[in-house]
């Protein structure tokens, strides 16, 4: 298939090269003991852009994501938001620096990590009320609107254990949205779900992408990646092997390793 035959992306790109760069990461390195999991990762995310990280297990994609909000502290590298002051990991990162970085993003986990001792509503308002000091009535109104959007308004007083996996993950997304972050981080948001529940979660994420939320997504769902991504990064062995628009990368990968990975996932029986 030649590039001209690739069907046009049904979604107009949300980010253009003119959009401001939200996040820049340069030369991110991280080792766990002798195991070098990230060997100099560069990443740029523009406002409104959806960047998807794919790659085999152990390729480092989750570590990249976790480095972006301080759940992992890289050994070296630079992170900057909105062209603001650099966070240089080779130097000592201050607590303020880490907290400031964390405030920019919100994370949706593979295992939702909802607070089991709080109701759905309490989960969602905890960050706004306790951390951001939003008045409680305001936070509740916001939370109810967000829950309504993902179809979970009637679950506001339920505890997480009483929800299905897909509902739990949608609450996880709402909890992240309630923080009104600049950047949404998704760490394999559907990997722990039963297959029939994957769709409802991906649908919500796609709607958010369409609304212009900026996000970095780690996923194994290539069909989904193709639909939502502006840029796909294929990682293997702690490096970005290939990056580009999903249409061209999935149909016409430049690197042998990318092709091998895509073949294994798209045609597992060949």
């Amino acid at each position: 298939m030649s590039p001209s035959e690739i069907p046009a992306d049904p979604l107009a790109p949300r980010a253009t090269p003119d959009d401001a760069v939200l996040l820049t990461a340069r030369g991110i390195r991280k080792s766990f003991g002798d195991n070098e999991v990230l060997r100099s990762i560069d990443l740029e995310v523009r406002r409104g852009e959806v960047v998807v990280l794919i790659g085999p297990s152990g390729s480092g994609k989750t570590t990249v994501l976790r480095s972006l909000n301080g759940l992992e502290t890289p050994d070296a590298g630079i992170l900057s938001f909105d062209g603001g002051p650099d966070l240089d990991f080779a130097a000592k990162v201050t607590k303020q620096g880490r907290l400031a970085m964390r405030d920019r993003s919100a994370m949706v986990f593979q295992q939702h990590n909802l607070f089991p001792h709080m109701t759905v509503l309490e989960n969602v308002i905890e960050g706004p009320v306790r951390v951001q000091r939003v008045p409680k009535a305001q936070a509740i109104a916001d939370a109810e609107a967000l829950l309504e959007r993902v179809g979970l308004a009637e679950k506001r007083d339920a505890y997480p254990f009483a929800l299905s996996g897909g509902q739990q993950q949608r609450v996880g997304i709402v909890r992240a949205l309630a923080l009104k972050p600049d950047l949404l981080l998704f760490d394999e948001p559907t990997s722990a779900l039963d297959p029939e529940l994957v769709g409802e979660v991906l649908k919500v994420i796609k709607e958010l992408a369409d609304e212009g939320w900026t996000m970095v997504v780690v996923t194994h769902e290539l069909g989904f990646a193709r639909q939502v991504a502006d840029e796909v990064l294929f990682m293997d062995g702690g490096v970005v092997v290939e990056r580009g628009a999903p249409g061209s990368m999935f149909t016409n990968p430049r690197e042998a390793r990318t092709r091998q990975f895509l073949d294994r996932i798209l045609r597992p029986l060949d």
Partner: peptide
């Protein structure tokens, strides 16, 4: 993951 969820909604370790 509960600690991490707390951190990612902006809480300090004490909170």
């Amino acid at each position: 993951g509960q600690w991490e969820a707390g951190y990612t909604i902006g809480m300090s370790s004490g909170t």
